[in-house]
Design a binder for these strands. Structure first.
Lengths: 195, 195
DNA sequence: GTCTATAAGATGATAGAC
DNA sequence: GTCTATCATCTTATAGAC
């Protein structure tokens, strides 16, 4: 049965819990048993929904990629200009980081990449590639509309923004400094502003 | 017995192998058995040198912190100006990343921080703190000598550089793009140059 | 869909011989 | 310092009942 109003299917609950655990501990430090405990089920039940851990990992990153596009669509529809879109994109990560110390799922998985099942690592690559393209489009639109100015390609700016976001969260976690990420990214977009 | 010329003590060999494995797979994806296999010893022998995995982790990050200072001293003695020092600092990471796909040890451990033994996580915090201070001194010296120009504190610039380096390596690994890190960091320091 | 039961293997760690 | 032997525990995964 699927979820009814206000409830989530077991499958979705598994994905939610697994995502939270990976964003906190990484792929190799969570187990089917952790999931089963939180769900108050048995590990065999979790395996029913995702036969292997790699299956779960792939489904997770694939869903995360969908969420990225969903968030970007939502930001686009909110009617802000390209610079505002990037600000909201950053604010998104700031919220989850400060509220639950969660890094970007793909950021954590990237760190562990060589130890991941190949299909999971491939999905991570796809996510970053997607994010880069989406951000590049925003940079390009900003330049076209003359609300942003920068040298080099929109693609390069997108890459720098991605690196800045991921790196700032990573270092913030390592330093155990909750406001580090916000402090660092606050001024970052200023350099793109026109006028 | 300690190492004689050209050889390494078992303890040092353990540290070398463990560091490489963590930089590749992360803390939770390497085992005493992995070390024993490479050393052609038994796991009990590894435990003789480091009773627990946490002991090994702490020793590792502590040594890595020493290496950081050693590298920075070496760069300082090479006689380049502050901007050149930062370039060499970045080049250091570029070399290990491109030659062996190795991320910064503390970067990988930061990603897994909530799942690490507390003493290990504490050592990671210390490393990043140290690196930040050392880089801030270089930025300050560059400003004093008028070879670098920037707004804000040297500390903030150091943080941005750290985030950029760590984030660029992380994203480069996730994307499986060997030259990504170099491409991204190549132009980064340009903005600090005077004249 | 969830359960019990179970398997085969890995893991961190220790005792005690050499 | 390194070994054999052993431990309890955890991990991913499967078979088959309900």
């Amino acid at each position: 049965m699927n979820a009814t109003a206000g409830t989530l299917s077991t499958r979705d609950r598994i994905l939610d819990i697994a995502q939270r655990l990976i964003q906190s501990r990484g792929y190799n430090a969570f187990s089917f048993n952790d999931l089963a405990k939180e769900l108050k089920l048995r590990t065999a039940s979790v395996h029913y929904h995702f036969p292997t851990k790699a299956d779960l990992g792939v489904a997770l990153v694939r869903r995360y990629r969908g969420q990225l596009h969903h968030e970007l669509d939502w930001i686009a529809k909110s009617g802000v200009d390209p610079l505002g879109s990037l600000e909201q994109f950053i604010a998104m990560f700031d919220r989850t980081f400060r509220s639950s110390n969660a890094l970007c799922l793909s950021c954590v998985l990237s760190a562990e990449a060589p130890s991941l099942p190949k299909p999971v690592a491939a999905e991570v690559t796809r996510f970053i590639h997607d994010a880069e393209l989406s951000l590049a489009k925003i940079f390009a639109a900003g330049k076209r509309a003359r609300v942003m100015a920068f040298k080099g390609s929109p693609r390069t700016q997108a890459r720098m923004l991605m690196a800045m976001i991921q790196g700032a969260m990573l270092v913030a976690r390592g330093l155990r400094h909750r406001s580090y990420f916000r402090d660092m990214t606050r001024g970052y977009l200023g350099k793109y502003a026109v006028g």
